[in-house]
Write a protein that binds this DNA or RNA. Structure first.
Length: 601
RNA sequence: GCCAUCGUAGCUCAACGGUAGAGCAUACGCUUCGUAAGCGUGAGGUUAAGAGUUCAAAUCUCUUCGAUGGCUCCA
């Protein structure tokens, strides 16, 4: 159970199946240049330089051929070879030659640190007619692979750069997967289908949450009324929580003079993700890619005493960043997005506690939404690098404060040296959704740089001017991405307090519409969002429509209900609560909504 | 941005060189119904845009725009 994937039989099966794929590919494309073919989390891939684009027929042929090879019961044989022998074996395979040269020369990272010693012998694995440069491990014989539990046609081939750099040649990456049994493969493919159905882009269309329009521009979501209710509800909730915790909302413009960004140091270093400046009269303005400089100017607009600190300025600030067109994806990767941003200006003594409070708030927010599977990545300084600003003691203080906060609050975390920002250590929040996919949400970053650049200060107890430390923080990260994740997490079945329409009235006949409107008025008076379905559908049609739109409560009302002053309650989960007095229902829903419960009753 | 695939009605799809169709949604009639879709009629498309090949193009070719899966990058 606790066996590491890398040590598992499944890992060996996938790695070996990748070699089998390369063998079949070389039969189909004798001129193919082979690169690398590792196992990955849910399968494997192999990269090829091909003389022409690969087609579906090619893939089907290769998949069938792979099964034949597997049925051939070939041994995987291991052999150690000299560098010269290896080069001779891979004559005409430039990618392999490059790998061999690297192994022979050893490897260094970008800072010149040796990360692999020069090799004097290399290892080959051979099955049937195919030999690959490979460390292994592999299965002993293709008999261990189940030919009915492999697939390469379930996923489109994709482009991938040699060694992951866009400066290098682009190869064709063919993905495949393999399992021990056909049932497991079928289950995996089934899960992929299910994931497609709960894709936030599909549900966004179905639930009328948002849309895109090419005339407006790519990566620029348009929030429809239902989606706007959803995000507005989230924003109001979080704003309220923040105000309770001493945050002060501020509002800043969407553009700023370019000199502001020159002073902050963001320009021109972030130019690859910024839009070109706008010329206005004699000045240039940036469309704001981040809110920090604006918030800093608010801090600087008045003199601060140590008694005022911490100053916590918060804003749902919309920023615009250039993302390459191929990187855009639904709501999770856009060009204009709203950060639930805040900047905390604190004394060194306050740093640890403020950090802790931010983490505590994050935990509260995600747990209330039922996102219980989360962790933190703590990015610390690379001890050997000189690129960081600020004293060593400050860094140590901040880093230990971050780790102490995680420990104190029981937040699972991994420490990742070298992942800090140049201006301070940081913590990224990562959640895992119901499909076990990880998403980065917000971030908390300690900053010693901007306070220096902008000469921020406060008056200390002894009357001296001191420099505050800044904490940048966002919990959702971006409201767009967060909503996208919530759509998929809830599969569109939002808890009642977030549902755009909370209650739908289903009058059985037209004569019951006035009664439905009375009930709707009572709900509205309690702040509950409802609608009356006065369409010409029959009751069954109205129920089907409400289920489709994931409306949590359906109130069916006919003669019996009108006479009794009652409503017949049906939940979107298909549970029938039967008839209950209107007031009782209103109180029940109001209770569920106010408590932000994940349950409907 | 790069590689691959794909763009047909608001949505989901069909037609695959020879007169662009269906379901849902929408509009208008009829129906007034008790827990997962009542019946009928209509409207809606220079087949993303532009160019080319052809007697004839939604269909073949090219360009542009957009989407998707990856790579790279990131909230």
């Amino acid at each position: 159970m606790s066996e590491r994937y890398q040590d598992s039989q499944l890992f060996r099966i996938r790695h070996s199946t990748a070699h089998v794929m390369a063998e079949a590919m070389l039969e189909r494309f004798p001129d193919a240049r082979i690169a690398i073919g590792p196992p990955i989390e849910d399968g494997f891939y192999y990269d090829f330089g091909l003389p022409r684009a690969i087609t579906e027929e090619d893939l089907a042929w290769v998949e069938n051929r792979m099964k034949d090879i597997i049925r051939g019961s070939f041994d995987f044989t291991y052999r150690e070879v000299s560098p010269d022998e290896a080069r001779a074996a891979f004559k005409g395979q430039p990618f392999k030659i490059e790998l061999i040269d690297d192994l022979v020369n050893g490897r260094e990272d970008e800072n010149g640190n040796r990360i692999a010693e020069p090799a004097t012998t290399l290892s080959f694995y051979t099955q049937d007619t195919f030999t690959d440069l490979c460390r292994g491990p592999h299965v002993a014989n293709t008999r261990e692979i189940n030919p009915d539990a492999i697939s390469i046609t379930y996923k489109m081939p994709a482009g991938a750069y040699w060694r992951g750099s866009e400066k290098n040649a682009q190869l064709t990456r063919i993905y495949g997967t393999a399992f021990e049994s056909k049932d497991e493969l079928d289950q995996y493919l089934h899960n992929l289908e299910e994931a497609k159905k709960r894709d936030h882009r599909v549900l966004g269309e179905k639930l009328n949450l948002f849309t895109f329009n090419s005339l407006v521009g790519k990566g620029l979501p348009l929030w429809k009324p239902n989606g706007a209710i959803l995000r507005d509800t989230l924003e109001r909730w979080l704003r309220g929580l923040q105000i309770e915790r001493g945050y002060q909302p501020v509002v800043t413009p969407h553009i700023g003079n370019i000199n502001l960004y020159k002073m902050s140091g963001h320009y021109p270093y972030y130019s690859s993700s910024q839009y070109s400046p706008i010329q206005v009269d004699d000045e240039e303005f940036m469309i704001k890619p981040m809110n920090c400089p604006h918030h800093i100017m608010i801090y600087k607009s008045e003199m601060h005493s140590y008694r005022d600190l911490p100053v916590r300025l918060s804003e749902f600030g919309t920023v615009y960043r250039y993302e390459k067109s191929g990187e855009l994806s639904g709501l999770t990767r856009v060009r204009g997005f709203t950060q639930d941003d805040a900047h905390l200006f604190v004394t060194p003594d306050q740093l640890a506690n403020e950090f802790m409070e931010v983490v505590r708030l994050f935990q509260y927010v995600v747990e209330l939404l039922g996102l219980t599977d989360f962790r933190a990545r703590v990015g610390t300084r690379d001890p050997d690098s000189e690129k960081y600003v600020g004293d060593d003691s400050l860094w140590e203080n901040a880093t230990s404060a971050i780790i102490a906060a995680c420990n104190a609050l029981g937040l699972p975390h991994t420490v990742e040296p070298g992942e800090a920002a140049f201006y301070g250590p940081k913590l990224d929040f990562v959640i895992r959704d119901v499909l076990k996919r990880e998403w980065q949400l917000g971030t908390v970053q300690v900053d010693y740089n901007l306070p220096t650049r902008f000469e921020l200060e406060y008056v200390a107890e002894d009357g001296t001017r001191q420099q505050p430390i800044m904490i940048h923080r966002a919990l959702f990260g971006s409201v767009e991405r967060f909503v996208g994740i919530l759509i998929e997490h809830f599969n569109g079945q939002f808890p009642a307090w977030l549902s755009p329409v909370q209650v739908t009235m289903i009058p059985i006949a037209d004569r019951h519409i006035p009664y439905a409107e009375e009930v709707a008025a009572k709900l509205k008076a309690r702040g509950i969002r409802s609608e009356v379905d006065a369409s010409k559908n029959r009751m069954g049609g109205k129920i089907a429509s409400a289920r489709e739109r994931a409306v949590p409560y359906m109130l069916i009302m006919g003669d019996k209900d009108v006479a009794a002053g009652a409503v017949s309650v049906r939940l979107r989960t298909d549970e029938d609560l039967g008839a209950m007095p209107v007031d009782q229902f209103v109180e029940m829903v109001a209770g569920v909504v106010e408590s932000k419960s994940l349950e409907l009753k």
